[in-house]
Design a protein around this nucleic acid. Sequence first.
DNA 1: ATGGTAGAAATTCTA
Length: 265
Amino acid sequence: MRIATWNINSLRARMDRVVAFLERHDVDVLALQEIKAKPAQLDLAPLTAAGYEVAAHGLNQWNGVALISRVGLSDVRDQLPGVPTWPEEDGVVEARALGGIVGDGLRIWSLYVPNGRELEHPHYAYKLRWLEALRAEGARELAADPQARAILCGDFNVAPLDEDVWSMEFFEGKTHVTEPERAAFRAVVEAGYADLVRPEHPGPGVYTYWDYQALRFPKREGMRIDFLLGTPAVEAALTGSFIDREERKGKGASDHAPVVIDVDL
DNA sequence: ATGGTAGAAATTCTA
């Protein structure tokens, strides 16, 4: 089974690219982030015509997540238990998580972790609390069944290692690289969710995101912030992985590249 | 000229 995650930065603007990607790489399951639409605004015909089921969750023009599968899609959940609201006072649960069961009992979560904005901004504290809720839900699932097949994937908005950004000097005093964010990411890994791509594709210089500004992509100035994390049962079934850097090229590309894994499940 | 784009929705917000 081939599974991918991709921050699409508007599904409506890039439906053609999504369909072409699915067909080019023979993808079974795709987790999307930043679909930037309510489900009613989407024309899903190109996906259903290609043989996929779709679950989409979006409240407005911001955030939004989706799951696309041709190997079944059931038990769909649009909220990660325990996540904070935004704003934290009198706010709502944003559309940043969508879970479902695909294939033979594989749980997958499409996740769009809050950006954090600036270190002093309330969004940064929100981001850390959100990641803690993710860790707690992941830990709960593995505690219930140590053999559980589960994947947590998406845009984590954290660069876990110095080598995951093009310049630590540039990111001094900025989000994505701070120790609290990295500790929150590590806590998810330590709860039993291993990075399924890094072992085959170690850094430095291996990225999944390049800012639209300042010619970051041609200058190879990117960040590794998109991940697929898997339980031990998934890790044991892993047969390969790649980052589709080609997808970042050309007119109309998302600022993120898809990340793909193959599992013998 | 301060190096700065992209998407959605509505002149601004988010990333």
